[in-house]
Design a protein around this nucleic acid. Structure first.
Lengths: 115, 115
DNA sequence: TGTTAATGCATAGAAGCACGAGGTATTAGA
DNA sequence: TCTAATACCTCGTGCTTCTATGCATTAACA
C-alpha cells in the first residue's frame, strides 16, 4: 500500500536534487528513484518536473553533467554537484530549516496564544 | 535588524491563513501581522500575496467574510473558517507534516559511511 | 514473435502561485 | 500639513510544477 503522495512546494525540488547529487554523481532517473525510496513514496518526481529542474540547475552552474555508462551498460547523463552548488545547498538547507521552524510555530498556535 | 525573511513556497500560504482564521475571525491585515509576529519575522506576507489568497479561499468556500468594525472603529472584512475550511485545514496540516517528515529523511541522508 | 514493462532522455503547453508596484481611503500624530 | 499606519484591492511578471507526449533501448513474457 503506497502512502499518499504529496505535491512538492515550489522550490523544494531543487533543494532535494542538490542533496542527492551531493552524495555522489547520479543520473536523473536514479535521482527520482532515490527520492521516492528514501521518502517512502511520499515524494514522487514526475519526469516533466525532474528534467527541467536538472537543466535549470545546470544552467545556473550548480550542477555539472557528463555522459557515462550505467552499471547496466546504458548511456546516461550523470550529474554532480559543483562547488557553487554545494554552497547553494548549504544556504538552501539552512533557509529550509528556518522556514520549517517558523511554520511550525504558526501551526502550533493555540487559542491561548493571542489576546 | 530584521531576521532574514523567506519567500513562502507555493501553496503554503493558504495553509497558514486557514490556521490563523481557525483561531477566530480576523481581518486580512491582521492575518499578515499575526503570521509575521508568531514566526518572528521569518514569514512575511506582502499584500499582493495576501489578498489574492483570501479571495481564492473565499471562492473555494473555505473562508467566509463579513464586514465589521475593528477595535479601533474602522471597517474591515473579517474572515472566518467554514466547516469545509476546517476539514481542509486538517487534511492540509496532515499532508504538510507527512511531507516535512519525508523531506527530513532526504535531507538527513548520510553522505557515505556512518557519522 | 509480438508485446508489454522498465530504463533513460527530452520538450511543450497549461495551470497555478507569489510578488512587486500601483491605486483608494481613513485615522493619528508630529 | 505631511507622514505613517491601518485596511482594502488588482494587474502584470516571473517562476515552477504537472500532464501529456515523444524518442530509443533492453528485458521479460506470453
Amino acid at each position: 500500500m503506497a502512502p499518499p503522495k504529496s505535491d512538492l512546494p515550489q522550490g523544494t525540488l531543487d533543494l532535494l536534487i542538490l542533496k542527492v547529487t551531493a552524495l555522489g554523481p547520479v543520473h536523473g532517473y536514479a535521482i527520482a528513484q532515490r527520492l521516492e525510496q528514501v521518502s517512502r513514496g511520499v515524494v514522487q518526481v514526475p519526469e516533466g518536473s525532474l528534467y527541467p529542474a536538472l537543466h535549470r540547475l545546470e544552467n545556473r552552474g550548480l550542477l555539472a553533467a557528463d555522459w557515462k555508462e550505467t552499471e547496466t551498460g546504458r548511456e546516461a547523463k550523470f550529474y554532480r554537484l559543483t562547488r557553487k552548488g554545494l554552497k547553494q545547498l548549504e544556504t538552501e538547507t539552512a533557509d529550509w530549516h528556518r522556514l520549517i521552524d517558523a511554520i511550525g510555530l504558526i501551526l502550533g498556535m493555540a487559542d491561548g496564544g493571542a489576546r
